[in-house]
């Protein structure tokens, strides 16, 4: 049967449906940034940016950019009513101190125990840059990853053990990919949702970790966006 892997926007849409009303959320650089566009409008969510913003809003209208108002990815943003600014130290008190409810990150690899590798491939030709990646992965109780299920060359990104240098151990709770939604639990990796036209056996063939199919698994259905 024919199947269509989700686009990055669709992965973000799916993750956005899990963002509850009243939560404080940090969106990592990459696909996670798109989540803010798809959170249902009846939910009030406060976005945190590592460089010292709570209540971060969308990008400004052309001509209204303020060089002093940027996000952690250094893109122009806005601040919403009730938002505030603070220094980097307090910002990481929020992160490390476990004050954020949800953190969404991109990743190179996630292991079946929830280890995450997302800051360096260890390639000696690429300048290492860590930013807030480790603080975010370690500090929040609910770390979720958005990524493609495999690399561009088809290598599994969900693995037994990460081969890239670790960001943190045993922190990832849920993974959203272009093929499935998978929870990392004490019992192992449990597949909750799979895209239409795909099946559990195919999913296992592109995953290098043991998977358990939830007996109440559902199709991963997203809108055309």
């Amino acid at each position: 049967m024919k199947y269509l892997p989700l686009t990055e926007r669709q992965i973000a849409w799916r993750a956005a449906q899990d963002v509850s009303d009243g939560t404080y959320v940090n969106l990592g650089i990459g696909i996670p940034t798109l989540i803010a566009n798809y959170v249902p409008e009846d939910r009030e969510v406060i976005y945190h940016s590592e460089n010292g913003i709570l209540g971060m809003g969308p990008e400004p209208m052309p001509g209204e950019e303020d060089p002093d108002l940027i996000n952690a990815g250094k893109f122009f943003v806005t601040i919403l009513k009730g938002g505030c600014f603070f220094d980097s130290s307090l910002s990481f008190v929020m992160i490390r101190g476990g004050h954020l409810d949800l953190v969404f990150l991109g990743a190179f690899q996630v292991s079946e125990k929830g280890d995450i590798a997302n800051w360096t491939t260890g390639d000696e030709r690429t300048i290492p840059s860590v930013g807030g990646a480790i603080d975010l992965a370690v500090g929040c109780e609910d770390v979720r990853v958005l990524m493609r299920h495999t690399t561009k060359t088809g290598e599994p990104k969900i693995v037994k053990e990460c081969t890239y240098p670790l960001t943190a151990k045993k922190v990832v709770k849920r993974i959203y990919t272009d093929l499935a939604v998978i929870d990392v639990t004490e019992k192992g990796m449990i597949v909750r949702e799979i895209i239409n036209g795909y099946d559990f056996d195919k999913l296992k063939s592109v995953t290098a970790a043991d998977l358990i199919l939830d007996e109440n698994w559902k199709y991963l259905i997203v809108p055309e966006i």
């Binding site: 490390r96 300048i127 480790i134 603080d135």
Partner: peptide, 24 residues
Amino acid sequence: IVELWKNRQVVLEVIPQGTLTERI
């Protein structure tokens, strides 16, 4: 920074952002 780092003309120490701010 990328060029000088590759050519080992500058020493680079990369620190997690929250650790950097807390060390300061």
